[in-house]
Design a protein around this nucleic acid. Structure first.
Length: 464
DNA sequence: TCTGCTTCCACATTTGAAAAGC
DNA sequence: AGCTTTTCAAATGTGGAAGCAG
């Protein structure tokens, strides 16, 4: 965890997390102000944008919010890792497990392929978490938000802004299939989001709301009397040639559909920014992907599908029928061990230190991959919708040249979710109106912030 | 019409999980 | 029941064709 002074040096040493100054904004909720005092030593910078979809305007801030630096310019030397967090889960910390790999990609300028069918991220986001309550249950979420309001183009040697960003696509969040699980479960081994896919298709079938077919056992995370709807955000929708930043959210909630959130922690790692593309632009990225991704083993220098071999096959094909494959193409030709993509998805075979801890099978109470875990997005969408919606229009001063290294304005709305009274983890405020229907219409989220305690009414029973 | 950029698709290969066989 | 082999779906980047805008 980094001190805000390290993250926002321009703010000077006087900066600290705190409530708005009295009189600066009369609309500031007393309950929320109280929430700021709840953790006077919570010295983590607030993740800008998070929950801005709930709070329609940054009116809870008296003074202009701090402006976190943008992720490092692609192709430039990355600054020291600085995970940024907004949270009301004191003591909870996240670290990027495969940071070295991410840094290696980031030093070149990470690109992520997006396809209509959906393409996995490589490297994947793999984090380890500490500081959770071993007995409490949490949800792990991942979303990807635009970094700025620009469209990019590859100029032969570097990425450069090239016009205004496309209109925003429907926001989605990927919910880790183990969710909800106990803190002990999450802390037992790294948490990998390697199954999440990126797509540029708004018509893909992996996000439809449909009747739920699974069991309603409470252990699966289903509450009583919930709507039988299931949302499957296994794919996140992105625009090509845009710069994005993955974010990881940790939500304390006993069930996916619990109306009570005991707290939220949100993290982003600057080295995980990437530009979405439909075809790789930077050949160095291609080489890195081939070298690091087990599924691309066939394209390595000693692989049968490497360029040299492919060219040779083409020549042979032109000359006549290809002879029977030689022993040189035997199974022992390929380097490395078994593909670990189902474990971590991004482990360099040549780097044993990057090997993930063996993951246990999903606990009995965990929902199947892509199953009921998705409903949290349906039922708590506003909490997942951060800054992206306003970025293209609210950051006119984004630097023209990303390689300039100059920090850019990033966002605006900061909120904290607070536990209920007496540290019960329960919200104190009455729930606002349900916003699920609003979400289904795909519109913005003008509903008011639920107030301290993050009491979100989704029509289910409290779990705590 | 031409050019350049971006997207799409078929391809060959590898991997892991599931099914089948012993 | 347990092990081995086979099958299949899903994953990868490549390269060329198609689509689009200027």
């Amino acid at each position: 965890m980094y001190h805000p002074r390290e993250l926002y040096p321009s703010l000077g040493s006087g900066y600290r997390l705190g409530p708005p100054q009295p009189g600066a904004d009369s609309s500031f909720s007393p309950a929320l102000a109280e929430g700021y005092h709840r953790y006077p030593d919570l010295d983590t910078p607030k993740l800008d944008c998070f929950l801005s979809g709930i709070e329609t305007a940054p009116r809870t801030l008296a003074a202009p919010p701090p402006l976190p630096p943008l992720p490092p310019a692609l192709g430039a030397e990355p600054p020291p890792p600085a995970p940024e967090a907004l949270h009301s889960l004191p003591g909870v910390n996240l670290s990027l497990e495969n940071r070295e790999l991410w840094k290696e990609f980031n030093s070149v300028g990470t690109e992520m392929i997006i396809t209509k069918a959906g393409r996995r991220m490589f490297p994947a986001c793999r984090v380890s978490v500490t500081g959770l309550d071993p007995e409490a249950r949490y949800l792990f979420l991942l979303d990807v938000v635009p970094v700025d309001g620009a469209r990019y183009r590859w100029q032969g040697r570097r990425w450069e802004p090239s016009g205004k960003a496309e209109p925003r696509l429907p926001d989605r969040v990927y919910i880790h299939p183990d969710s909800p699980a106990t803190g002990a479960h999450w802390m037992r081994q790294p948490v990998s989001f390697h199954r999440v896919k990126l797509t540029n298709s708004t018509l893909d079938p992996h996000g439809h709301v449909r009747p739920r077919l699974g069991p309603r056992d409470e252990g699966w995370g289903w509450g009583q009397g919930e709507e039988s709807l299931l949302f499957l955000p296994s794919q996140l929708i992105l625009h090509s040639m845009h710069k994005y930043q993955p974010r990881i959210h940790l939500v304390r909630a006993a069930q996916l559909c619990s109306q009570h959130w005991g707290g939220v922690a949100s993290f982003r790692f600057p080295e995980t920014t990437f530009i979405s593309v439909t075809a790789y632009q930077n050949p160095r990225i291609t080489q890195l992907k081939i070298a690091a991704n087990p599924f691309a083993k066939g394209f390595r220098e000693n692989g049968r599908n490497c360029k040299r071999e492919r060219d040779a096959r083409v020549k042979r094909k032109l000359r006549g029928p290809e002879p029977v494959a030689t022993a040189a193409y035997g199974s022992g030709d390929a380097p490395g061990g078994p593909c670990d993509s189902t474990l971590g998805g991004d482990v360099r075979e040549s780097d044993p230190e990057q090997a993930p801890a063996p993951r246990e099978a999903a606990p009995a109470q965990a929902p199947p991959c892509g199953g009921p875990s998705a409903e949290a997005y349906l039922l708590h969408p506003a909490a997942f919708h951060g800054a992206p919606s306003h970025l293209p229009t609210r950051n006119p001063s984004f630097p023209e040249a990303p390689d300039s290294g100059r920090p850019a304005p990033y966002s605006a709305a900061f909120l904290e979710l607070q536990p209920g009274p007496a540290g019960s983890g329960y919200p104190a405020a009455a729930p606002p109106a349900s916003f699920a229907s609003h979400f289904l219409q795909g519109g913005p989220f003008p509903l008011p912030y639920p107030g301290a305690g993050a009491y979100l009414d989704v029509g289910s029973k409290p779990m705590y």
